[in-house]
Design a protein around this nucleic acid. Structure first.
Lengths: 87, 87
DNA sequence: TAGATATTTAGACAACTATCTAAGTATAGC
DNA sequence: GCTATACTTAGATAGTTGTCTAAATATCTA
């Protein structure tokens, strides 16, 4: 989970929209897909990108996979971000 | 100057290192180049990426081009960043 | 255990990125 | 005006990204 991975993950509008959705509540892949025009495989690609940046995590619930925001990691991120610009 | 452009600009380690250098003081393209192994044309590409994200600005001083951090824009950025994760 | 539902993996592909070399532009100083 | 210095622009290229379709995997339910 490098800074580069994190910024790269946040650089895509689809992925930021996924974060917006998960901010309200955790959701299954299918529920998330309802908000987008792109295919589920494409979304899976974005889930993986966000997971690799440690921004979200997943959990199986029966046939569904539930995605959630990793709020703890986001705090660290804020810190790195501040440091980048602070003199 | 979109959020995507900004995050994309920050996703590259070379560009973050340029920011680190400019944080200490404004510098010419040549001075910045001394800190890297890559060619000046490659650095110019990174300068343009950072300029497009409005993170830096340039100013000519004789034969040299001096680059500086755009601190005002960075404040806005922080704000967008907070909003992205705030419920 | 067969069929339905939910999601991922694999493989292909067009577009974009970061790099290079070679050539061009701008300024300074003689 | 010529030459040197500082930097950018142009064009090529290998690697990465975001998307798709088709196939595979996992779980539930009858």
């Amino acid at each position: 989970m490098t800074l580069s991975e994190t910024f790269k993950a946040l650089a895509d509008p689809t992925r930021r929209e996924i974060i917006e959705l998960l901010k309200k509540r955790s959701r299954s892949a299918g529920e998330i897909a309802e908000h987008f025009q792109i295919t589920l495989p494409s979304l899976t690609y974005h889930f993986n990108t966000l997971k690799q940046a440690n921004l979200i995590s997943q959990e199986r619930a029966g046939q569904q996979i539930i995605y959630s925001l990793n709020l703890s990691v986001i705090e660290e991120l804020m810190d790195s971000y501040f440091k980048l610009f602070k003199k």
